[in-house]
Design a protein around this nucleic acid. Structure first.
Lengths: 143, 143
DNA sequence: GATAAATTGAACATCATTTTCATTTCAATT
DNA sequence: AATTGAAATGAAAATGATGTTCAATTTATC
């Protein structure tokens, strides 16, 4: 089976780009971290084991991961761009706690259908979608 | 009936803030412009008739409009924060063309119900939500 | 109208991200 | 294994949206 690493190598090859030590390290670091990290957060994590990896390289590589379809860019409330690995069963949405920042993912085929229907009604062809619910999680309500 | 202007004055008064010429000009400019303008775009528009209004003042006032509930901040694909007037019949969503940037608003009570249901399932109390569909509008598909 | 507190505008600060550019690395070839 | 040209790297500087500072001005209240 094609691993994510293979996918990335493929993508690089087909675009005249090179497989480098840094890109492999960054991909591994990304796959082995919790989802929704920002480029900076990933940089800080990688730094421990790889103090020689540059800030800009992490930014550049995250863009490549997004371009290659391995990751998706996400924007939540704050300023930073966050990345999450793309799963094959694509569409999921987010439930975000305003207080503790907890992020819960969920899916809903019924919602998905309705969204697709709406797009069709307006004669749009959809590329991607964003759905986020913000509120207080049970724990934070308790306080 | 209370106009938006009255609402804003009220808000300012109750918070020990002052009604100034600039704030009134900015509010009027905002209400008289297409929705989804960024602070910078509004600044550029206002500048024509009011060359003496400062950049920072527009930013500050837009924040006030958001705080007072008159406007809502929105983040679409790009970096800029955009503002839209708050209507009383709150929840609507956005359909955005990747190519020409056109923004279409829509509502859907069925979707709204499903979202509310999802939040309940996770014992979340919702504060706000964000739903955006990105794709190509009919015109841009034609090209 | 005097007064104190809030606001303004211009310049500067900030924060995430991007770009520049000299140096290094990769990969295809001799 | 050495050559070579294109692409990548890292450090520093640039960028772009937004925030903040501070002296000068304006507003609301007395």
């Amino acid at each position: 089976m094609a691993t994510v690493k293979d996918l990335f190598r493929d993508y690089l090859g087909k675009h005249g780009l090179k497989v480098t030590r840094q890109r492999e390290i960054i991909l591994e670091g990304f796959m082995g971290s919790p989802s929704h990290l920002s480029a900076e957060e990933l940089y800080l994590r990688l730094r421990k084991d790889h103090p020689n990896i540059g800030y800009a390289t992490v930014y550049r590589t995250m863009k490549l991961l997004a371009d290659s379809g391995i990751a998706s860019e996400r924007h939540f409330g704050d300023r930073q761009t966050r990345y999450e690995p793309n799963t094959s069963d694509d569409h999921h949405y987010h439930l975000i706690c305003n207080s503790c920042g907890r992020i819960i993912e969920f899916e809903d085929p019924k919602i998905e259908d309705l969204l697709q229907q709406t797009a069709s009604d307006h004669h749009f062809t959809l590329s991607h979608q964003r759905l986020e619910l913000y509120g207080l999680c049970p724990d934070c309500q308790a306080r």
